[in-house]
Write a protein that binds this DNA or RNA. Sequence first.
DNA 1: CCAAATGAGTGTAATGCATACACTTAATAA
DNA 2: TTATTAAGTGTATGCATTACACTCATTTGG
Lengths: 247, 247
Amino acid sequence: MHYTHLVFYIFERIHFEVFWIIMNRTYKQIQQITLAVDCIIFGFDTNKLEVLLVHRGFEPEKDRWSLMGGFVGNNEDLDKAANRVLCDLSGLENVYMEQVRTFGKANRDPYERVVSTTYSALILKKDYRAELISEYRAEWFSINNLPDLIFDHKDMIVSAIQRLRRRVRTVPIGFNLLPEKFTLPQLQKLYEGILGEQIDKRNFRKKLRTMDFLIRLDEKDKSQSKKGAFLYRFDEKEYNKAKSFNI
Amino acid sequence: MHYTHLVFYIFERIHFEVFWIIMNRTYKQIQQITLAVDCIIFGFDTNKLEVLLVHRGFEPEKDRWSLMGGFVGNNEDLDKAANRVLCDLSGLENVYMEQVRTFGKANRDPYERVVSTTYSALILKKDYRAELISEYRAEWFSINNLPDLIFDHKDMIVSAIQRLRRRVRTVPIGFNLLPEKFTLPQLQKLYEGILGEQIDKRNFRKKLRTMDFLIRLDEKDKSQSKKGAFLYRFDEKEYNKAKSFNI
DNA sequence: CCAAATGAGTGTAATGCATACACTTAATAA
DNA sequence: TTATTAAGTGTATGCATTACACTCATTTGG
């Protein structure tokens, strides 16, 4: 075969292949999109609400902070993806996360089109193994003092905080953060930390007194005061009988 | 340049381009997913809440009903996609829809992997041009009497109803469904229809009396009774001053 | 023209819930 | 014994929610 023919043949192949590939990609581009999950992990220790962020040590957006995020696999439940990503990036397992909302502006990620569904959880900081923090360059930040975040991650955190505060008042998720036996001052500090506001002790306790699923034990915890504070436990069965929860 | 060099140059280019494109596609195929939006359109005329569904005249799932759904384009905002799909399938334009939640179980659609974000709106049935109903085989169904729906569309409707009922109590979305001038009996019927429960007339009006953005006019509507009912209007500016809304 | 019918409009009492607010108690350590 | 520390308790007030029944204005038909 003459070189000239070969060159034309090659050009034709290129034309055909590129046409096919481009068409195929174009068609797929209409309908297939990279789908991500981003996890907003709220952490609480004794008084403040913080959020776990990871440091980007690479370009693009080097040295900024981001939520723990990753892509959704093709045969993976969205909920499962959120848990996998969280585990991959933090070692946290069996964390109950709830979907917050989906962020889908075409240009929210300026590098490529990614639609991201956010999930949120509330955990105790001490349950997070400290060694993983350095490994993944993750850090806790007070929700009142967030660093510079990539993309729309700040909006994601804000909407997750709103949801958390609404939810913590109507569902007893706060009790999951306390040990089996806890004191009322502990519980109050928890709510104050999450809601970001002070609560009157007497009014708070008055409301709790109406909740039959809070059982006072005959033990006291003396670690915080000389007098000691009565320990309580959360009774699951009683709670299921109750219709409402509201703090 | 000699042909030989050109050929090798071309081969090199092909190698590079194809490698890049293949890698890129492979990378994308792992992570790209068909993303859909489904619209839950609640319609109200005078007393009942209904939802707009389309009949599937084709396999698979022929003769079952579904929400109005479609795929999200690659350069299309998620919110915009919802509006486009709604318009394509119903002719409804400028409908303000809000995101409800995203359904992402791997097998929710047994035919292919599709993640779907739901959007919901509340409109007046009469604003929907009737001729489009037959064209698209769409029909209104009472929310208490839904037909057999494909996939998880029933769950989608249920979660949208919950959200709508929560929202209609805290944001004055109901007023959008009424004409400029409306009567209090009309307003009450609207709320009763959406909430699915009876409301005491005196208590309802007592609450409305505290809302400064409801302005009573010096006109009456006599179409519903011999006595006639006073017309009111919703004052946007006064509402913006107000901090709260709660019915 | 009077009676019946229809839907519009109004008020009060009781109860529960949210808020504001200050002192006493138990225990320990100095 | 006294000082310190945090735990624990009650009341009064206002505001919102609920339950509840009659009068009013107008039209229609006898």
